[in-house]
Amino acid sequence: MTPVMHPLIQAETLCSMQDDKHLVVIHAGFGETAYANYLKKHLKGTRFVELNTDLSDIKENAAQGGRHPLPAVQAFARRVARLGITAQSHVVVYDENKGANAAARFWWMLKALGHQKVQVLDGGPEEAEQAGFPTDTNIPEVQPATAYTTEQWLLPTASLDEVTRASEKNTVTIIDVREPQRYQGITEPIDLIAGHIPGAINKPYQHNLNTHGRFKEASELRKMYQEFTADTTLVHCGSGVTACHTLLAFAVAGLPIPKLYVGSWSEWSRNNKPMATGTHSKGTS
């Protein structure tokens, strides 16, 4: 049996792999300035993906799947092929927000495509640069690969109907990873309405990191999440992106990955669903 690759890689380890012919480093950006930021400076040899255009299939109405719906699995497979990623590739992905902007989402999607060798750079590109990984402004030449033929996402997701039943019956734990003020309904800077799904508990994704901006130790993350079994837990955020940061934390803890509710609050709050404010009895951690 092939050993499971740890979901994180440290900067020093990445530096030691610079000459590995199978290494593929991905800069995962988000927003209109993402590509310009990539061109200004990135880890040498890094290839670029962008959350809105490469990792989502954004609809005209966010009520249909939320602000960042997943693309069709084969559309993503073709994008992965254009990045030159083969089954032998050792993929390392980073973003500019400790993995929470787009890197964890890319990690989840690549795992859900069936790729095994993928890790998120713990601490981000600054850590690698400080450890001695060279930076560049050039766009690397890439030899396209053969696309994966996966016909459906291989990691579990939850639909709006499934989350509705979970909220009504209270038989499944719904974890909301947004900031407490958004969860409590005090403020909502992105979506139309503030609040949370009735019955959801708040476990902000920022709590996955230590004071240095790296993921907490596996034992500490295990204490945070071991009470939540994968088959009775749904994880969501605002649009299905930062939720992947917590799914990554589950993997770091050595726990099975729960279901991702991709539509998240951005879909729920636009579909005339019940909403709650304030804190839940299980509280925040």
Results as ranks from 00 to 15, higher is better:
131 A>K: 13
136 D>H: 09
49 V>E: 05
123 G>Q: 11
47 R>S: 05
117 K>T: 06
100 A>Q: 09
163 V>F: 06
80 V>N: 03
100 A>E: 04
119 Q>H: 05
96 E>V: 01
99 G>W: 04
78 R>L: 11
170 N>Q: 15
52 N>G: 12
95 D>Y: 03
96 E>Q: 09
133 F>M: 11
125 P>N: 07
54 D>Q: 09
72 A>M: 08
119 Q>S: 14
170 N>A: 15
82 R>Y: 00
128 A>S: 13
154 L>M: 13
114 G>K: 07
76 F>N: 02
146 T>N: 14
103 A>P: 07
137 T>H: 14
140 P>Q: 10
107 W>I: 02
113 L>N: 02
116 Q>F: 01
110 L>Q: 09
73 V>S: 04
159 S>A: 12
61 N>Q: 03
71 P>K: 08
149 T>I: 10
71 P>H: 07
57 D>A: 12
69 P>Q: 06
89 S>C: 09
162 E>S: 11
58 I>N: 03
155 L>M: 15
138 N>Q: 14
45 G>N: 12
167 S>D: 08
118 V>S: 10
145 A>S: 15
99 G>T: 10
96 E>Y: 06
148 Y>D: 01
54 D>W: 10
91 V>Y: 05
104 A>H: 09
99 G>V: 05
60 E>S: 10
55 L>E: 03
153 W>I: 12
133 F>T: 03
159 S>K: 08
149 T>A: 15
120 V>I: 10
139 I>P: 14
56 S>V: 05
165 R>M: 05
56 S>L: 02
52 N>R: 12
76 F>E: 02
163 V>M: 11
122 D>P: 13
66 G>N: 07
160 L>T: 12
156 P>M: 10
157 T>Q: 14
58 I>Q: 12
120 V>H: 02
108 W>A: 03
163 V>L: 14
110 L>F: 08
68 H>E: 03
104 A>I: 00
145 A>P: 13
58 I>Y: 03
54 D>L: 00
61 N>T: 06
138 N>Y: 07
103 A>K: 01
127 E>V: 04
161 D>M: 12
100 A>C: 06
159 S>G: 04
97 N>L: 14
144 P>C: 09
135 T>K: 10
116 Q>W: 01
136 D>C: 07
96 E>N: 14
139 I>Q: 15
81 A>T: 07
64 Q>C: 03
66 G>V: 02
136 D>Y: 07
162 E>I: 04
132 G>E: 06
109 M>S: 08
122 D>S: 13
64 Q>M: 04
109 M>G: 04
100 A>L: 01
47 R>N: 08
70 L>A: 01
169 K>F: 05
80 V>L: 11
138 N>V: 12
112 A>V: 01
85 I>T: 06
80 V>C: 13
119 Q>P: 13
159 S>P: 15
168 E>Q: 15
114 G>E: 09
93 V>S: 05
104 A>E: 00
136 D>T: 11
103 A>T: 07
